[in-house]
Simulated scan of single mutants.
Amino acid sequence: MSVQEVNDSTFDSSIAKQGLTLVDFGAVWCPPCKALLPIMDTLSTERGDALRVLKVDCDDSPETASRYGVMSMPTVIVFHDGEPVEKLVGLRPKSAYENVLDKYAVKA
């Protein structure tokens, strides 16, 4: 599965699904946001159907960014069954995102 871009009009329906969703709030002009993209792509590929990864451009979707209190970029919010459960502000190493996802992952 790949990173899916969403906006103010498609965001709610995109996170309303069961399971884990990772939402990357950023902007095209933001260098740390660009550095985060390969990490998000890798997580999406490695976790497959167990994780949806969404990207929100804060410039194009200010309502959604404001609703979730995004003040700096990148901000990554983890949603579990459509509810926000964790917020990570700033660029982090891949392991930081993996550790948070592992807390909410359904164990087989």
Rank of each mutant, 00 (worst) to 15 (best):
A65Q: 09
L22M: 13
C30S: 09
K55E: 13
V23P: 12
C58E: 09
V76Y: 05
E98K: 13
V23R: 11
F79K: 11
C58A: 15
R52F: 03
K34F: 02
V76P: 04
P38S: 09
A65H: 11
V100C: 10
A16Y: 07
V28E: 14
T10Q: 12
T10P: 11
F11D: 01
S95G: 14
D49A: 15
A50D: 15
T42D: 15
M73C: 04
T64K: 07
T21M: 03
Q18F: 02
P32Y: 00
D59Y: 13
L43V: 04
D59V: 13
L88S: 14
F11N: 02
V23A: 10
L91S: 01
S14I: 10
P93V: 01
E83Y: 04
E63R: 15
P93L: 03
E86D: 14
P84A: 02
D60P: 00
V85A: 01
E86V: 15
G82C: 11
D12C: 05
P38T: 05
W29L: 05
A96N: 14
G69M: 10
K87D: 00
L88Y: 09
G69F: 10
D81Q: 06
T64L: 10
C33S: 08
V89K: 01
F79T: 09
G82H: 06
S44F: 07
T75L: 08
M71Y: 02
R47A: 12
V28G: 14
I15P: 04
P84M: 02
A35N: 04
W29E: 09
T64G: 10
R92W: 02
R52W: 01
P31D: 08
S72W: 06
H80A: 10
F25W: 05
K55F: 14
I77F: 08
M40A: 08
P93R: 07
N7T: 14
S13W: 05
V78Q: 06
P74Y: 03
T64E: 07
E83C: 00
G48Q: 07
A96Q: 11
C33T: 02
E83R: 11
L91K: 00
A16E: 12
G69I: 08
V23M: 11
L37F: 09
G48F: 08
T10Y: 08
F11V: 00
M73Q: 07
A35T: 09
S66F: 11
V89M: 12
S72A: 14
S61F: 04
T42L: 10
G19F: 06
V28Q: 12
C33A: 06
Y68S: 10
L43P: 02
I39C: 07
S95Y: 07
E46S: 14
I39D: 07
I39E: 08
S13T: 15
F25M: 03
R92V: 12
P74V: 02
S13L: 12
T21L: 00
